[in-house]
Amino acid sequence: MHILRVANFVSPTSGGIKTALRTWGECYQARGHRASLIIPGPGPEISEESQGMVFRVPATPIPGTGYSLMWDRTGVARLLDAIAPDALEVSDRATTRWMGRWARHNRVGSVMISHENMTGIMVRHTPLPHAPSVWSADFINRRSAHDYDAIVTPSHFSAEEWQHIGVDAVVVPLGVDLEVFTPTSDPAHYTAPGPGVSIELIHCGRMSPEKRPELSVETVRELVRRGHDVRMTMFGDGPLKAALMERAQNLPIVFHSYITDRAELAARMGQADIALAPGPLETFGLAALEVLACGVPTVCTDEGALHEVVGDGGAIVPGTPAAFADGVETLLARPNGRQRARAQAERFNWPDSADRMLALHEKLRTRHTRKHS
């Protein structure tokens, strides 16, 4: 089976979506299938990679976001025709929704992967009042459900907005590379920071409005106010980085550039005592899962899907600086915290995730074959 994946919101510094695309593609090929990918440029027009053949097409940059979008339907449609896949997997419900209709016309099974929570985005990040925001999200979601054969979400939280409009989304949790993201030392021998030793924190998540990184900054402020000797490293990049650096002046916070080498990132994360994952609209929380796999207990918000990922591996608290500071204190006092974090991460792996996707693609392929035989 030749599986074509398409995604618009992918950049050189993308997080979860880029990781999922790459790893699913590698797993598909390891199972004997062909995998291809269409994403926005820049970069080599065509390249053969571990995840399969990658096609980068001309795209228009979106100022202030780091993303570019493919708008040329005619050119992309020609590329779809030339690739002629057996299955289509699209990671965007809005700008590429037309591809579901292309797949139906060409008798190709189609899956739309819901990587974001449209209802939450419309409610929190648009000027519309609450009710019109929900109606708008429902309208967009109904159109997506109509155009694709199946909707996939990475969490039960993400599936709720589809169930709200009567659509049974398929929940396929993401995974983590447990060999790359692994504790730097034996979690059983870990000793919590004592007097005179700084508490090392790290922030998980892109520095963009939907990830609410300012909560991590304000948590450090609250911990300092309480008299804790604390330091935090914020890894990554995003449109809010400059504003966050200004906000963090006079606080013990270091901003680290984006790390492309996953082994180096894992080693850096594994040195922390506690991680902070403040994103209120996460539909999964891959960054939090990766840090859990490194044996680092994580404080996360009780909003979104993070509680499904963090579980017993951390503290689930309201999204306020005081509550997050309470969570840090709770985890510092919790016995076996690093073992519990690693054990929680081991519940998720990429081969199982890819096998669920492959089973769905095969089911849709069989359905189309029967329908047109």
Results as ranks from 00 to 15, higher is better:
Trp162Val: 04
Trp162Gly: 00
Trp162Gln: 00
Trp162Arg: 01
Trp162Ser: 01
Gln163Glu: 11
Gln163Tyr: 00
His164Gln: 13
His164Ala: 14
His164Phe: 01
His164Val: 00
His164Thr: 04
Ile165Tyr: 04
Gly166Ile: 07
Gly166Met: 07
Val167Gly: 00
Val167Pro: 02
Val167Ser: 00
Val167Tyr: 02
Val167Trp: 05
Val167Met: 01
Asp168Met: 12
Asp168Leu: 14
Ala169Cys: 08
Ala169Ile: 04
Ala169Trp: 03
Ala169Asp: 07
Val170Phe: 07
Val171Ser: 02
Val171Lys: 06
Val171His: 07
Val172Thr: 14
Val172Pro: 02
Val172Arg: 06
Pro173Gln: 09
Pro173Cys: 10
Pro173Tyr: 11
Pro173Arg: 11
Pro173Ala: 10
Leu174Ala: 13
Leu174Lys: 06
Leu174Val: 07
Leu174Pro: 05
Gly175His: 09
Gly175Cys: 11
Gly175Phe: 06
Val176Pro: 01
Val176His: 02
Val176Ala: 12
Val176Asn: 04
Asp177Cys: 01
Asp177Leu: 00
Leu178Ala: 13
Leu178Arg: 05
Leu178Tyr: 00
Leu178Ile: 05
Leu178Glu: 03
Val180Asn: 00
Val180Thr: 15
Val180Gly: 02
Phe181Gln: 01
Phe181Ala: 03
Phe181Trp: 11
Phe181Lys: 02
Thr182Cys: 11
Thr182Lys: 03
Thr182Gln: 08
Thr182Asn: 04
Thr182Arg: 12
Thr182Tyr: 03
Thr182Pro: 02
Pro183Asp: 03
Pro183Met: 05
Pro183Leu: 07
Pro183Glu: 04
Thr184Arg: 01
Thr184Glu: 04
Thr184Pro: 00
Thr184Ser: 13
Ser185Phe: 09
Ser185Lys: 04
Ser185Met: 11
Ser185Leu: 05
Asp186Met: 10
Asp186Pro: 05
Asp186Cys: 05
Asp186Ser: 10
Asp186Thr: 03
Asp186His: 04
Pro187Leu: 09
Pro187Arg: 07
Pro187Glu: 08
Pro187Met: 08
Ala188Trp: 00
Ala188Glu: 15
Ala188Asn: 09
Ala188Tyr: 01
Ala188Pro: 03
His189Ala: 11
His189Tyr: 08
His189Asp: 14
His189Asn: 09
Tyr190Arg: 14
Tyr190Cys: 05
Tyr190Gln: 06
Tyr190Asn: 06
Tyr190Lys: 04
Thr191Asp: 07
Ala192Asn: 14
Ala192Met: 14
Ala192Gln: 15
Pro193Trp: 10
Pro193Ala: 08
Pro193Asp: 09
Pro193Cys: 10
Pro193Gln: 09
Pro193His: 09
Gly194Glu: 14
Gly194Lys: 14
Gly194Pro: 07
Gly194Ser: 13
Gly194Ile: 06
Gly194Thr: 14
Gly194Tyr: 13
Gly194Gln: 15
Pro195Thr: 11
Pro195Lys: 13
Pro195Gln: 11
Pro195Arg: 14
Pro195Glu: 13
Pro195Leu: 12
Gly196Asp: 12
Gly196Leu: 06
Gly196Gln: 09
Gly196Pro: 10
Val197Thr: 15
Val197Asn: 13
Ser198Cys: 02
Ser198Tyr: 00
Ile199Arg: 06
Ile199Gln: 03
